[in-house]
Amino acid sequence: MNTLRMFYIRWGVVLAVAAGLVVLTAHHYRVHLASFAPREVASESPAGEIRVIGMVQSGTLTGDVSAGDATFTLAGQDASLPVAYQGPPPDNLREFKTLVAIGTWSASERVFQARDIGIVPNYGFVTGAYLVGLLPLALLLFTMSRRVSLLYEEMKASRLYQED
């Protein structure tokens, strides 16, 4: 088969796999790791387990943090949310700390029942690092492979090289 045609078929397969991986990752992050702001939780009352990002408001943290039992208010830009936390003793729970509370929203009690607390994810840095790390390599490989295919075509056309 034509060397250049094989080259385009190979790269078509690579692009299809890469696109599939990107779609799968985006879907996973949207479904499992999407976060709500306190205002969205209060107004939309989302069902099931969700993640809420906000800052622990000063003077609201009460209870026994070291025992994993505390209440506090999580503040967003224009709204705040009362949170009742019960779970493993958290490392990051302190006033003025921006964090992610994972749990369920009780619309009747107007309290967010958190079971876990995590640090704010930096997806921008992760995405940036993968794009910076992989895109130049893919472009370099594409350019080199295409050039090699063209050179073989040129050699065959000029009868410089006979295939075994």
Partner: peptide, 26 residues
């Protein structure tokens, strides 16, 4: 392909660094 799947989706975030630890895999 397997490494990117494990690194971006199949592995847990780090206890201290959180999601940023995924940069380690690249």
């Amino acid at each position: 392909t397997v490494g990117l799947y494990l690194g971006l989706l199949g592995s847990p975030p780090d206890y201290y660094q959180g999601e940023v630890v995924r940069i380690m895999y690249i």
